[in-house]
Design a protein around this nucleic acid. Structure first.
Lengths: 143, 143
DNA sequence: ATATTGTTGATATTAATAATCAATATTAAG
DNA sequence: CTTAATATTGATTATTAATATCAACAATAT
């Protein structure tokens, strides 16, 4: 579950689509895998820019989308705010508690809830594929 | 839980904010309370326009937001799609199963999940205020 | 080497939402 | 009823985030 594995996955997905590898692609991937938390495209762009000031915003945008398609990144959209991205490969599924005051994202997971969600879907003749659960409120520091 | 009550709540909230009532406001509220399901601003605008072609889009937009603030309407944002609004007053809290193929929204509720969500928040020293749970997949017809 | 075709980076476009503002309507006060 | 104060409307413009466009360039296969 190291960075190397994630890179391999990305590369093989790229190839599968008939796409090519480039130094920009590698730099952006490397930067994303080194980042943690829930970052925006702007955050990643700023990081990448430090290493290579020649890289453009569009390239970061495109490649982040590509990482999502490859299963390495996950997009989180809250209202009309900018989308945030988190690592997916080697990270367990989780949901979020989101502080309305400081904006902090707390990652949580509850197996019982997960099971009940599946049952709930089943009871409605619905085939669940993914889900999103966000609890908004006040975190430890802000309550 | 009739329409009249909802209107009273809206009116009193309006007044509390030092705002005024207008015929447009009443028409838009009436149209919203008569609509059902998960409608967009455009949907509501079209309905209102039939009764009174003079009413502008901005007015519908503003007043729908005002209904949200008054607790009569709830906004549902899915990705970058247009926001949808549903009635809140006199309607139980519920979550959604969303079909990825036909776009259908199925309203669901599970008390056990609700309780576990509260416990989950509590276990993280988090004060929950509202939450969103959406399960994406394929509905009965599309699976 | 060279032809092919995907990639990049600057910029333009799209789409949803919200802000602006002059004309108008509502409300309270005299 | 009249008037002053101020909120509302509706057309338009501005803002914001996300994505598309395209000429110059780079990666790949032959």
């Amino acid at each position: 579950m190291g960075k190397a594995d994630a890179k391999d996955i990305f590369l093989s997905n790229i190839r599968k689509k008939g796409l090519r590898n480039t130094k920009q692609r590698e730099e952006i991937l490397e930067a994303f895998l080194s980042a943690d938390g829930h970052i925006t495209i702007d955050d990643l762009y700023a990081t990448v820019k430090k290493r290579d000031p020649e890289i453009g915003y569009a390239t970061v945008h495109r490649n982040l989308k590509l990482m999502c398609e490859s299963g390495l990144a996950d997009e989180i959209k809250i209202g009309n705010k900018k989308a945030r991205y988190e690592q997916k490969y080697g990270h367990e599924h989780h949901d979020h508690l989101i502080c309305l005051k400081c904006g902090r994202f707390i990652e949580v997971n509850d197996e019982r809830i997960e099971r009940l969600q599946d049952k709930l879907a089943e009871a409605n003749d619905f085939k669940p594929m993914r889900h999103k659960m966000e609890i908004y409120g006040l975190c430890k520091k802000c309550r």
